[in-house]
Design a protein around this nucleic acid. Structure first.
Lengths: 234, 234
DNA sequence: GATAATAAATGTAAAAATTACATTAATAAT
DNA sequence: ATTATTAATGTAATTTTTACATTTATTATC
């Protein structure tokens, strides 16, 4: 019987454990990723995701939130694990496992000075430059996951301001799904989900007429979920 | 500027990296999980998932497949990452990150002697005993993921023999979804997906009349995917 | 060899959801 | 008052999903 299995108290080798973060934002009608330009050698000038090693006494999740807060000044942000990247040769230096998270942030909320000070830049997801190590793969997987998930869970709202208009929301889904949606059907569908609160305010930044602002009703959504409710946006 | 971030070449602390595996099977009309009873101290007699430490020169994924092969004798099995479990206090011994995979196996294929020799047992998913450490949480998450995923991806077939009948397939989806399905609508739906190959053979083990055997057409499925095909079983 | 028993297989109508599509409404600028 | 522009609305056709009952193939038994 192999000796390597289930032997929690005779562990063999230690490795470095890092966490990297895909930070998505929505701005100017585009879905964007925040990437970081290395300003130190080696690999100076290469683009990469933002990350950190995980401290010995620190939850992986806490480490990820620490990084995000240090970079953007944001706390209480939507963040979820994408997965662990653990190929033996993924980092040519030391053997390092990276646990990747993706975060969705409201692009107007973050601390722009802080972000700039870290050499970070937003790229349209269609124009993200080549990234260091296996970060390209992480990005590709994260984008896929975001696209899949947006369909069945109300994560899109994490990318919009708290108050948003239906046309804004539609544009967001259009860039996520990479296809045009019919305005009438989209509005009908969204309103039929019963989780939008119409406000008595308009956003006039994009039209003379102005568009009504809405909020997403998290409470209602949670309630509905309990009774077999199905959120889906096609 | 914080010193802890993106400093890949001044890593701080090493940790143990393990991989644990949720092994699902379908037998006697029940969805089952393979769990392992510790036969050595400490924690002798406690149930846990099957796992191993990851070797320094080994991909995490390879480690997981190694474990699965050592335990079941199976290779080329459906396996996917569930995620990394990295709470600082999850293992009271050493700081260990566990990367959890879930595997779907054909319950008639595995090496029963080998499995028994490792003190492993199949439990109906509704009767899984308390598991060691955070393995309960892993199991709960894995089951959720399996349920979600079964709906939009043809993973159910991984749990059935290569040749299966429609009623078998229906029963599988019934136990995954925990609800009864209408036989006529289920059959209609499945056949309309155009990815089942009807064979000229019957399985007579459950009825006098016998039920036709089918195979899942992976090639066709892959082709269809490319042209915007939507697999969904409700 | 007729009959009984049993699970497999099939069809159709009603209801619900999705799609396609064109016009009117509100407002600010000229 | 007119123009320009985006927001907002409704309806009919199509597709998908649901609900529901009978016939078919076969083996065992009388």
């Amino acid at each position: 019987m192999p000796e390597t299995i289930i032997d929690f108290y005779k562990p063999s080798d230690k490795m470095y454990v890092a966490t990297d973060c895909l930070i998505f934002g929505f701005d100017e009608g585009q879905l964007k990723l925040l990437v970081f330009k290395r300003r130190v050698e080696p690999r100076r000038g290469e683009w990469s995701l933002i990350g950190s090693f995980v401290n010995l006494d620190e939850d992986v999740e806490v480490a990820a939130k620490r990084v995000l807060a240090e970079i953007t000044g944001l706390e209480n942000v939507f963040m979820e694990q994408l997965g662990a990247y653990g190929a033996a040769g993924r980092d040519p230096g030391y053997r390092t496992i990276s646990i990747v998270q993706y975060a969705l942030i409201r692009i107007n909320d973050y601390d722009k000075k802080l972000v700039e000070s870290h050499g970070a830049h937003w790229f349209d997801i269609n124009e993200v430059p080549e990234l260091v190590l296996d970060h390209d793969k992480m990005f590709a997987h994260g984008l896929e996951k975001l696209r899949r998930k947006a369909r069945y869970q109300p994560i899109g709202f994490e990318l919009l301001p708290e108050k948003f208009t239906i046309p804004q929301l539609q544009k967001l889904y259009e860039v996520i799904y990479q296809k045009e949606l019919d305005g009438r059907n989209f509005r009908k569908k969204l309103l039929s989900l019963n989780v939008l609160i119409k406000l008595n305010e308009k956003d006039k930044s994009t039209s003379r007429r102005g568009a009504f602002l809405y909020k997403f009703d998290y409470k209602k959504y949670q309630q509905l979920l309990k009774s077999g409710y199905n959120f889906e946006i096609t």
